[in-house]
Nucleic acid binder design. Structure first.
Length: 624
RNA sequence: GCCAGCGUAGCUCAGUCGGUAGAGCGGCGGUUUUGUAAACCGCGGGUCAGGGGUUCGACUCCCUUCGCUGGCUCCA
């Protein structure tokens, strides 16, 4: 149903997009079987070929070391490859090391990789002989009369190719992890073991990729969040439920304040609606028909079933319906920081990025058909402007439209779809924004624009979604009175900018590596008196900071200066103001900026004015 | 939910073959009054995630529940 919430996917750069690309179809298909032949021996190879060949090399090593193992599929992916294996015993990390060592041996021997084209029956016989019944299944499904195979010594694979000429060309790889994966991606099928590996053309690139992984691990919000005392989760509380600590809550409150101000200034009104509602509202909305699996069991209140809301739209619609609406009232732009609860399968929970209770920065725009273009443009501009304030300026935009081959999957009249899509395209083109067209990625009730932000490590995260909805206004019988005095059905757009506050917070923690820009930092300056006798001056200074609308904290502990500095630096406090005899006498403070070091003594009023302006402009860096 | 792995002090981790636990940091107490990334001494702190079982004896072996991790599936 009308989800406002962007998919809770993980970062493109790290996990989610390890999905399949063209080369991940090692299965044969006689239509293309002859095309890649030349590539098989070409000395200059593209990256996917290299990675796919590395997958074969690994399968070769695995089948050598663990006889009886069956191979599934082994495509190239974004940064390397994976290969799925069926084997009763789990692969241990020791096994991984052994497999990698074996791969190096096989690579060192520079074994030629040979393509052959053989009759299907022959292929079936060969793979049956080897006990590779999964491959036989693939051949029978995918193969034409003649199928292609690749072999390197005793290892034989059913594969379209192309591949590198010999194993010696495979040099810079590393096995990373093993995990479960369903045969053919269907959870009703047997579960196999998937081994992931990284492959790059040069040692330097592999090294830099491994370094990126390490960097991502270090700035993982699940590590930084609790470490910086921003949030926690708790076993007794339950999975997927977030406790916002004072510092995290401070950041959230700042974001919420900013969000409200921007919305009011941007022509929105802000709503509040309850967390639960009677069964009937979710029957009308269709959630109980289409969305029940994601909803929690009802609670009985005075003999009536009430549900926790999984979305805010039915509630906003009730407000719309609370009185007659004229075309003169439209557009109505209603926003809410709406807390919703959704059942997510236990295995999918992930820190702040995928939780069971979260707050969407939701909005619904109700408008007339002829307002839709300008409204889309407006919401697009608004979204990009807000994302930019958080430092996300390099975004990827996707336009998700219907699958032209499967119109039955969607509801709503054709002309509405055409108009909706046209207005989305128009908005993107008016702004000259490049976008990727995603056929068949539309939600069933309407097309949408998604914005994925690119973080400091180059990973993409989906935040914003702008979705048409042809369904809700119909189900709830929403109307407005037009110029003609007759009832009309309003157009409805759902949108979320940050997605959910939890998720956005997680992204921000990783993007900034926990070192929030001044306007968001929960503690903006740590004031450090050198000795106890400077405590009073430090407090005075803190008072002046607070009077300037800044957030200081005084470190009155009886510790050495160096200790307090180290502490503030590791907690990523943006500014340090050191005060001792000199400063107290001169009415100054010694300034130290996180990541920049000691800046020497500064005059206080000037500093505060400067900081105030950095906060007001939401500057992402501190420069004086 | 599924496959695999993990869960020992607030945090990071050690703990041999089954004989009921240890370090560093943090915390607390004291000494030190400190000038730009960790002063010194001392002290507490654990139902070894919870429950059940095997055993003379379980942190250790088995079962189970919860939570977490890597993926798969899902992300309407």
């Amino acid at each position: 149903m009308s989800s406002l919430r962007p998919p809770h996917g993980r970062a493109d750069g790290s996990r989610e997009h390890m999905g399949r690309k063209e080369t991940d179809e090692p299965m044969n298909d006689d239509k293309n079987a002859s095309a890649p032949a030349a590539g098989a021996t070409a000395p200059a190879v593209d990256l996917d070929t290299l990675r796919h060949s590395a997958a074969h090399l690994m399968a070769h090593a695995v089948l050598d070391l663990f006889p009886g193992t069956q191979a599934g599929i082994g495509p190239a992916v974004e940064t390397g490859f994976y290969y799925d294996f069926l084997r009763p015993e789990p692969f241990s990390s020791d096994d991984l090391a052994a497999i990698e060592a074996r791969m190096r041996e096989l690579a060192d021997r520079d074994i030629p990789i040979v393509r052959s084209e053989i009759p299907k029956a022959e292929a079936v016989r060969l793979f049956t002989e080897r006990g590779q019944t999964l491959k036989v299944e693939l051949i029978q499904e995918k193969g034409g009369d003649i199928v292609s195979t690749y072999s390197q010594e005793g290892f034989l694979d059913f594969c379209l190719g192309p591949h590198v000429a010999s194993t010696g060309l495979l040099k810079h790889f590393k096995l990373l992890s093993v995990s479960g994966a369903y045969w053919k991606g269907d959870e009703r099928n047997v579960q196999m073991q998937r081994i992931y590996g990284a492959v790059f053309p040069t040692a330097a690139e592999l090294e830099s990729h491994l370094h990126l992984l390490e960097e991502a691990r270090k700035r993982d919000h699940r590590r930084l969040g609790p470490e910086l005392d921003l949030y926690s989760t708790n076993e007794d509380l339950g999975g997927g439920l977030i406790l916002w600590h004072p510092k995290g809550a401070r950041i959230r409150a700042i974001i919420e304040q900013y969000w409200r101000e921007r919305h009011w200034a941007g022509g929105y009104d802000v709503l509040y609606t309850p967390h639960i509602g009677r069964e009937v509202i979710f029957q009308t909305s269709g959630h109980l028909d289409f969305y029940k699996d994601s909803m929690y069991a009802p609670m009985d209140i005075d003999g009536q079933n009430y549900y926790m809301k999984p979305m805010n739209c039915p509630f906003h619609i009730q407000i719309y319906k609370s009185r007659m609406r004229s075309y003169r009232d439209l557009p109505l732009r209603w926003a809410e920081l709406g807390t919703v609860y959704r059942y997510e399968r236990s295995g999918t929970l992930h820190g702040l990025l995928r939780v069971r209770g979260f707050t969407q920065d939701d909005a619904h725009i109700f408008c007339t058909p002829d307002q839709i273009e300008s409204e889309i443009l407006r919401v697009l501009d608004f979204s990009l402007s807000i994302l930019a304030d958080f430092g996300f300026t390099d975004n990827k935009i996707e336009l998700s439209v219907r699958d032209p081959h499967n119109p039955a999957k969607y509801c709503g009249a054709d002309d509405r779809w055409r108009q909706a899509e046209a207005s989305l395209v128009k908005a993107l083109e008016t702004r000259g924004l490049p976008y990727e067209r995603m056929e068949g990625e539309a939600v069933f009730y309407g097309p949408k624009i998604d914005i994925k932000v690119k973080d400091a490590l180059g990973r993409h995260w989906q935040c914003t979604t702008i979705q048409f909805d042809f369904n809700m206004s119909n189900r709830f019988g929403m109307t407005y009175i037009g110029e003609d005095g007759k009832e009309h059905q309003p157009y409805m757009v759902h949108r979320a900018l940050m997605g959910s506050l939890e998720r956005f917070f997680g992204i921000l923690i990783e993007h900034y590596n926990g070192a929030f820009p001044l306007w968001l930092a929960p503690v903006q300056m740590m004031i450090v008196p050198i000795a106890e006798r400077h405590g009073a001056y430090a407090e005075q200074l803190a008072e002046r900071c607070r009077a300037a609308g800044l957030r200081p904290h005084v470190d009155q502990r009886r510790e050495k200066l160096a200790y307090k500095i180290r502490d503030a630096e590791t907690h990523k406090v943006p500014l340090l103001l050191v005060v001792g005899d000199k400063e107290a006498a001169g009415g100054t403070a010694s300034l130290r900026i996180h990541g920049q070091g000691d800046k020497g003594a500064v005059e206080v009023d000037g500093l505060l004015a400067r900081l105030r302006s950095l906060v007001d402009t939401r500057s992402l860096t501190v420069s004086l």
